[in-house]
């Protein structure tokens, strides 16, 4: 049975520190656009921490929700792409082929989670950040869409290693950058087809819910609701 990669986000554990966002930027060669462009809505965070204030002062509560591509099983972004740049892989990933993208930006409009990003300019990195680019991830040119891949390069690397060593993948072998960077261990990644994996267990939790479930996208990220009051 092929893998079906998924994620669980424990909102009780999330402190909103943003380490996952930084790790994602570093791992995936995501350019920073600078304050002027960010103010114009050009910021690119494949993973963002949404911050909401709930209630009226002084009874307010601050909540965080890390939102990345939900790798939906019925992804609205996929069928609208005229060139198959956005499509579904056998392992359930919502893949984006940069070279095939012609930049219609239709996928970004169709995405209910607004987690697809457009390269408004050719990417640039302020020195010395250009020396730390990840060689495993291609740099996207101007005019294409990009988004969270669940760190597909890491998944592939682990799968290839496991195949070379002729062993099965264990739960926890694959860790996307955000999962690795989360010190509170709020993010859990794994195979949803393995009923014993931690992510499967958490996905079955009564605290679990999907983001915008009523849109019918069948997302593969489960959010575990907050129970503590801070």
């Amino acid at each position: 049975m092929p893998h079906k990669w998924g994620m669980a986000v424990d909102l009780d554990r999330c402190t909103g520190c943003g380490a996952c966002v930084t790790a994602c930027h570093a791992e995936n060669n995501i350019p920073t656009v600078g304050p002027a462009q960010a103010a114009r809505g050009r910021a690119m965070h494949w993973l963002r921490v949404e911050r909401y204030w709930e209630g009226d002062f002084p009874d307010v509560r601050l909540t965080f929700r890390p939102v990345m591509c939900q790798h939906c099983d019925a992804a609205p972004c996929e069928p609208v792409c005229p060139t198959y740049a956005s499509h579904h892989t056998d392992e359930g990933l919502n893949a984006q082929v940069y070279n095939r993208c012609i930049g219609t930006r239709y996928c970004a409009n169709a995405c209910p989670y607004s987690v697809r990003f457009f390269d408004f300019f050719n990417p640039q990195w302020p020195k010395p950040l250009h020396l730390q680019l990840n060689p495993d991830v291609s740099v996207r040119e101007v005019g294409v869409m990009e988004k969270c891949t669940f760190c597909v390069q890491r998944i592939r690397a682990v799968e290839i290693d496991a195949k070379a060593e002729k062993r099965e993948l264990k739960d926890g072998d694959v860790k996307p950058a955000c999962v690795q960077g989360c010190s509170a261990r709020a993010l859990v990644f794994g195979d949803l087809n393995d009923p014993e994996s931690e992510v499967s267990r958490l996905s079955r939790s009564p605290r679990g819910s999907k983001l915008l479930e009523d849109v019918g996208t069948l997302p593969k990220v489960t959010y575990l609701e907050r129970q503590t009051q801070v």
């Binding site: 019925a74 972004c77 069928p79 499509h87 579904h88």
Partner: peptide
């Protein structure tokens, strides 16, 4: 055959 959006490979509606 590329899968998109949980649709069949040969999707007659479109």
């Amino acid at each position: 055959p590329l899968r998109t959006g949980n649709m069949p490979i040969v999707a007659w509606w479109p």
